[in-house]
Write a protein that binds this DNA or RNA. Structure first.
Length: 423
RNA sequence: GGAGAGAUGGCAGAGUGGUCGAAUGCGGUAGUCUUGAAAACUAUUGUACUCACAAGGUACCGGGGGUUCGAAUCCCUCUCUCUCCGCCA
């Protein structure tokens, strides 16, 4: 959520910057400002009414003590009147606040200046590429390979749960575990503190990172307990710092977590989502940083570089793109997507998304900090990225490393798998 | 799931209808003393809105609602924590 201070300081600039999202937010911004003015005047009125009422209430106590019954009773009548006024004003204030809140929660984050305008992924800006595309004697899609080597069973998942819940078996399961260990160990070396978070979160946490109320349908919900299955470890990880006031020397805060992720992704069926390409349950190692506003973009670059090294170590061909306005997530100010080339499908698969949310999440989370010696609190910046999501990495590993001899395991993973080929 | 107790400022903990934004202790910060430090002493120390980051005002004692001129204090409700019992990896 944007803060009203941000909006009021430079509304025109914000409207202009939001327009790269391919939508016009002028009305909403103006409404927000208007509604806030409204809120202020109502609050002022209420405050003065309450002040009067408080004063009288205090005097009544004194009057009774002094035995001035009559005067006290007179004051009482006055107080009743004020109370009624205050009640009406209070209702008015609440509805105004609600309206304002609704408007604010409909305004997405301001894209960073470097975000290109554009409608869809075709307008994303290519930053760099790396790795070599493999020369394969024969191309096979990973779902065929999975069956051939009996390492992932999609049918079995259908039986036990439903579509999008694959069952990993034997070397397939071990490879998953190896990837998780590899990613966590790398993150640890990079200075991230490992966390094992809950896989379900409450409503307040969902709101804090922006999944609620906007993307409600994305999460699996336990209606009876008002809990949600996490769509990413970003949610519990970032919410560790909800309602927290940090000191400026607490920065940077670096957290990592492996978790299963659960996404309903309603309505996305068909050809592009075969095999591991899109799942309801998948595994991911996430990295989160909380940083001083002055340093968050430097940190974003570091995170991008870090994710790049992971893909390089896995010897996968990749490209990094900067998302255009139309493709940029609601809460993000700047996002880099990583895609790996998966030879069997002849497709680029998105495997990581690294974003700076600036103070957008922090405002929802009430995640603040104090500059050394200063009294005033400021909003911190939050960032996160996948490092990395497993299924599409696995798909690319299977497809790119396949030959008649079987599927070759990248060197960095072998100490975790204890085998070097799937055959 | 059953029975009971409780939720107060960074922590501990007092406060059961007015003078309570809240005693006291610890912690934090600044200062005095000291060559320096410790100790001791003094002062200061919640968040947010309004507003000039002033003064003043307002809200917040787990969340929401109610009673009252007035609530941390009484009532209702929700959430959470603890103790005992039951169940259980």
């Amino acid at each position: 959520m944007l803060t009203l201070t941000q909006i009021k300081e430079q509304p025109k600039e914000i409207i202009k910057r939001l327009s790269v999202r391919n939508k016009n937010f002028e009305d909403l911004i103006n409404k927000a400002i208007e509604e806030d003015e409204n809120r202020k005047s109502v609050q002022n009125e209420l405050d003065t009414t309450l002040a009067k009422s408080n004063k009288i209430a205090k005097s009544i106590g004194l009057l009774f003590k002094e035995g001035k019954q009559e005067e006290a009773n007179e004051a009482k009548q006055e107080a009743v009147k004020l109370k009624e006024e205050a009640k009406i004003l209070n209702e008015k204030l609440n509805s105004t606040k609600e309206k304002l809140q609704k408007i604010l929660s409909d305004i997405p984050n301001i894209p960073n200046k470097s975000v290109p305008a554009g409608k869809s992924e075709e307008d994303n800006k290519l930053i760099r590429t790396g790795g070599d595309t493999p020369n394969l004697s024969q191309k096979k899609a990973h779902w065929d390979l999975a069956e051939k080597f009996d390492i992932i069973d999609f049918e079995l998942g259908n039986k036990i749960t439903g579509a999008g819940f694959p069952v990993y078996k034997g070397k397939g399961a071990k490879l998953q575990r190896a990837l998780i260990s590899f990613f966590l160990e790398e993150a640890d070396k990079e200075g991230y503190t490992e966390i094992m978070p809950p896989l379900m979160v409450n409503e307040a946490s969902g709101f804090g990172t922006g999944q609620l109320p906007d993307k409600e349908g994305q999460m699996y919900e336990m209606k009876e307990d008002k809990l949600f299955m996490i769509p990413t470890a970003e949610v519990p990880l970032t919410n560790i710092y909800r309602d927290v006031i940090l000191k400026s020397n607490d920065f940077p805060i670096k957290l990592t977590a492996y978790s299963s992720c659960f996404r309903r992704e309603a309505g996305s069926y068909g050809k592009d989502v075969r095999g591991l390409n899109r799942l309801h349950q998948f595994d991911k190692v996430e990295i989160v940083q909380i940083q001083h506003p002055d340093k968050s973009y430097e940190t974003l670059d570091n995170m991008v570089n870090y994710v790049e090294t992971l893909i390089q170590k896995l010897e996968l061909p990749y490209r990094i793109v900067r998302l255009c306005g139309g493709d940029l997530g609601f809460t993000s100010a700047l996002t880099y997507d990583f895609e790996v080339y998966s030879a069997g499908q002849d497709k680029w698969l998105e495997v990581s998304s690294v974003s700076n949310f600036e103070s957008f999440q922090a405002n929802r989370l009430k995640l603040r900090f104090k500059e050394d010696g200063e009294k005033q609190t400021k909003l911190a910046h939050t960032l996160n990225g996948s490092a990395l999501a497993l299924p599409r990495i696995l798909a690319a590993l299977l497809e790119n490393n396949y030959s008649e001899k079987g599927i070759k395991i990248p060197k960095v993973l072998q100490k975790f798998t204890n085998f070097d080929v799937i055959d």
